[in-house]
Amino acid sequence: MPRTPLIGTLTEDLTLTAGSFIVTIYGDIVVPRGEVLWMGSLIEICARLDISENLVRTAVSRLVSADRLEGERVGRRSYYRLAPSARAEFADAARLLYAPRDRANKWLLVFDADLPEDQARRARMAKVAPGLWISPDRADLPATHAPILRAEPVAGIDRLSELARFWDMDELHSRYRAMLDRFRPLADRLDDITPEDALIARLLLVHVYRSVVLRDPGLPEAALPEDWPGTEAQRLFRQLYLALSSNADRQIAAMMEGEAGPLSATTDRTTARLAALTT
Rank of each mutant, 00 (worst) to 15 (best):
P5F: 15
P5D: 13
L10D: 09
S20W: 06
I22C: 09
I25N: 04
Y26C: 05
I43Q: 10
L49I: 15
I51S: 01
S52D: 05
E53A: 14
V56R: 08
T58V: 11
A66L: 11
S78K: 14
E89H: 10
E89R: 15
D92R: 15
A93G: 06
A94K: 12
A94V: 04
L96F: 07
A99Q: 12
R101N: 09
R103C: 03
N105F: 06
K106I: 00
A113P: 01
D114F: 07
L115Y: 15
P116H: 06
A129L: 14
P130R: 10
I134G: 03
H145L: 09
I148V: 15
L149V: 09
E152Y: 05
R159V: 02
A164K: 06
D181N: 13
P185S: 06
R189E: 11
A198R: 10
L199E: 08
L199R: 12
V208A: 09
L214M: 15
G218Q: 10
E232Q: 12
Q234W: 00
R235C: 00
L242C: 03
L244M: 04
S246H: 12
A248M: 09
M256S: 11
A260D: 15
T266A: 14
T271P: 00
R273S: 02
L274R: 08
A276W: 00
A276L: 00
L277G: 05
